[in-house]
């Protein structure tokens, strides 16, 4: 029904109707996924226009951090560099994906306000734009991951499939968190600051730079941290270890519940979002 040829917009007709309209927004964004991709690609290109290295500057800065922290902390903690460097490298790169997707989620609708207020583009398009942009960035930083995998010979021990599964679950979860942040930030301008503080706090509370060996398995401090599960399901298999099956389960449950919540919030606020901006 919602196509380039036919547009129907009506007043509220009950909750069920609001959900079906939200679903239509989602379906339309899928049909126009090329647009989300174009916008994401354009964002990356335009952010680094005129720069020779482009997004690789971030890769270089991340690489430097990996090198520094990898060598220093290995010494401080008394762990071998061969063990610690790949651990930190993957931690920094994948946490970068999480922090980027969530922090930039706050700007999703605010940034798109002029487009939202004069076109009928689906709102989900802009969510995918943020997520895809961060995946494009990740593809650049993957150089670091590849580097440590080759240099430290991890390709002999790593298990790619569970890592890919972990990455997919992580992306699905990041997408709803990013969307929730987008809606909340459109309405309340304090949210971006709040989200940024939380993510800054999370990078130190999550085993990105440190090993969780001091905690017994499944300690609440780790189990209650969603970023721990995202990180460990991707990182452990790549390091040739087995990630706790519980983490995958938790991520799957989180994805279902999180999307149910976010989609409901979207269905209810969808009409208002353009007025928030």
């Amino acid at each position: 029904m919602e196509s380039g040829q036919h547009m129907l917009r009506t007043g509220r007709r009950g909750t069920l109707f609001e959900f079906s309209m939200a679903l239509r927004d989602l379906v339309t964004s899928y049909h126009r996924r090329g647009l989300a991709w174009s916008l994401a690609w354009h964002d990356v290109v335009s952010r680094y226009r005129g720069s020779i290295l482009g997004p690789f500057w971030i890769t270089i800065s991340m690489g430097l951090m990996v090198l520094g922290i990898g060598l220093l902390y290995a010494k401080l903690f008394g762990i071998s560099v061969a063990e610690f460097m790949p651990y930190v490298a993957m931690g920094i790169v994948f946490f970068g994906l999480m922090a980027g997707t969530i922090n930039e989620g706050c700007d999703t609708f605010v940034q798109a306000s002029s487009m939202l207020s004069q076109t009928s583009l689906p709102m989900f398009t802009f969510i995918w734009r943020t997520v895809l942009r961060n995946l494009i960035n990740l593809a650049h930083h993957a150089v670091i991951i590849l580097g440590v995998i080759i240099f430290f010979g991890l390709w002999r021990v790593m298990d790619v499939l569970p890592a890919v599964g972990g990455l997919l679950l992580t992306i699905v979860n990041l997408a709803w968190i990013s969307m929730l942040a987008a809606i909340a930030s459109a309405r309340f301008r304090d949210i971006p600051q709040f989200v940024m503080s939380v993510m800054q706090f999370a990078i130190f509370m999550t085993p990105v730079f440190w090993k969780p060996d001091a905690f017994p398995d499944r300690h609440a401090f780790l189990t209650l941290n969603p970023f721990y599960h995202m990180l460990t399901t991707i990182r452990a298999p790549l390091l040739g270890q087995e990630a706790d099956g519980l983490s995958y389960v938790i991520l799957a449950i989180m994805a279902v519940l999180g999307w149910a919540l976010t989609f409901s919030v979207f269905a209810i606020t969808r009409r208002r979002i353009v007025h928030f901006l």
Binding site: R9, T10, G11, L116, S120, R270
Partner: peptide, 9 residues
């Protein structure tokens, strides 16, 4: 199509 009606269609 940018603004949703409050009433009507």
């Amino acid at each position: 199509g940018a603004y949703e009606p409050d009433e009507g269609q």
